[in-house]
């Protein structure tokens, strides 16, 4: 049980897909101009990555290693299609807002990486937990970026105006340039934070 918790936790902080592994930065830039699209994208990826990890883990003994990548891609594409069709049916506005990036989940590096690195070597339950952890980490990163960008670039959160009229929103945060800068500084900040935590842990371990 403890092992599973560790597997889940590492995706959140120390191996965070966006801030530490620096995978799937393209969607982290493209859909994070508002919180709601960030959240939708994060949850979609979380679902896809978990489901795909389970499929890959289940089939790891029957698939010939030579053809594993096409098999992964087929499985990812199937799951993404499910997500896409359900979003289109139940949340057409969000589906429109995410546009091409929803379909592009198929080629997100983080999903293939987890299938290759973790799911193809582990049992179903750990693979599922790993997918949940990595998905949650991705979702967390996207929501943090989305919150900052929407708050500073539009003065609102989830579409509700938070900052009063006195604030003149800085459009740069909505534009890609601001996203790039923000992610850069977030990566640096994340690194500072994790190093600090590790140092503390080491000190405590010695004491």
């Amino acid at each position: 049980m403890n092992n599973l918790w560790l597997t889940f936790k590492k995706g959140l902080v120390e191996e965070n897909p966006v801030f530490v592994l620096a995978l799937s930065l393209c969607p982290a830039l493209a859909v994070t101009a508002s919180v709601i699209t960030s959240l939708t994208m994060g949850l979609s990826v979380m679902f896809v990555i978990t489901a795909n990890n389970m499929v890959v883990s289940l089939s790891r003994k029957i698939v010939n290693p030579k053809v594993r990548v096409p098999v992964y891609i087929t499985s990812i594409a199937t799951i993404v299609t499910v997500v896409q069709l359900s979003l289109q049916a139940f949340a057409p506005a969000l589906y429109k807002a995410l546009g091409i990036y929803l379909a592009l989940i198929v080629v997100f590096a983080i999903i293939l990486a987890r299938a290759e690195v973790f799911a193809s070597k582990n049992k179903v339950i750990p693979s599922m937990v790993d997918g949940l952890g990595m998905g949650a980490g991705f979702c967390l990163a996207l929501v943090i970026i989305g919150c900052i960008r929407e708050l500073l670039g539009n003065g609102s959160l989830l579409g509700i105006p938070i900052i009063g009229d006195w604030y003149d929103p800085a459009l740069i945060f909505i534009l890609p340039a601001g996203g790039f800068m923000l992610i850069g500084y977030m990566v640096a900040g994340w690194k500072m934070w994790t190093t600090h935590m590790e140092k503390k842990k080491a000190e405590r371990g010695e004491a």
Binding site: D168, A170, L171, I172, F173, L175, A177, G178
Partner: peptide, 10 residues
């Protein structure tokens, strides 16, 4: 340039 994209009106 950053100010220009941030507050184009001002």
């Amino acid at each position: 340039a950053a100010l220009m994209v941030s507050w184009p009106v001002a």
